[in-house]
Write a protein that binds this DNA or RNA. Structure first.
Length: 220
DNA sequence: CCCTGATTCGC
DNA sequence: GCGAATCAGG
């Protein structure tokens, strides 16, 4: 792959949007994040703080280059050998399949273990489109009336920073919360880092698992 | 460990 | 110019 005008343009766009190099690389395809970073530098737009531009929306690390002290040259000789560790994939984990995402509740993915206390329980997944006679433009997102408005706000908040991964890009540590209509090209998965042991990121765990107490008395 | 961007340097 | 390898950090 080469840096065609188109690709460079997309690179610039995404970089400006605060997307990470790895994400840009994935989007472009055929290049690694290193390639992207290298290109970014050669294009001279390494610092996301453009002239007169709005501050980056992403908590990008500020490279505040300090007047590097004339420290002694690194005398590192030791070589670090990375241990090769095999992944026998023990647990009969449920794998995300090409199964119709229409009714499959992502909640049951890898949820066997510690569901800890009976204090929480999964809430119907948002991916599950209500079985409704087609024709209605209704966006059956998770019934808002049974989720704490606080959690919802948090979700819409972080969804702006979502990685927007495709099914194939999901890993054991990327949030598997689906967004959008599976039948639409605008369908994607959150992809943010998952919360330890959970299939979702912090925000989505918030709406996926509700304390029994708040679920107890929802009428209707 | 996973992930980020930054730099170097042979090609 | 390119980008893998490496470095440095969260």
């Amino acid at each position: 792959m080469s840096w065609t005008d188109e690709r460079v343009e997309l690179l610039k766009k995404m970089w400006a949007e605060g997307q990470s190099a790895s994400q840009i690389a994935k989007e472009l395809g055929g290049v690694t994040r290193n390639a992207v970073i290298g290109k970014v530098h050669r294009l001279g737009l390494s610092n996301r703080t453009g002239p007169g531009g709005a501050p980056g929306p992403v908590p990008a690390q500020a490279p505040a280059a300090p007047p590097a002290a004339p420290a002694a040259p690194p005398a590192k000789e030791a070589k670090i050998i990375k241990e090769t560790k095999g992944r026998p994939a023990p647990q009969p984990e449920a794998e995300l399949e090409d199964d119709a995402p229409t009714k499959r509740a992502p909640v049951d993915i890898d949820m066997d273990e510690d569901m800890d206390e009976a204090e929480t329980r999964p809430v119907p997944s948002p991916a599950r489109k209500a079985i409704v006679p087609a024709g209605q433009p209704l966006p059956p997102q998770p019934s808002a009336n049974e989720i704490s408005p606080e959690a919802l706000a948090k979700v819409s908040e972080i969804e702006k920073k979502a990685k927007r991964l495709t099914l194939m890009e999901l890993t054991e540590r990327t949030c598997k919360w689906p967004v959008g209509d599976p039948a639409t090209p605008d369908f994607w998965f959150c992809g943010l880092p998952v919360q330890q042991g959970k299939p979702y990121c912090e925000a989505h765990v918030g709406v996926a698992f509700q304390p029994m107490s708040s679920r107890r008395d929802r009428r209707r």
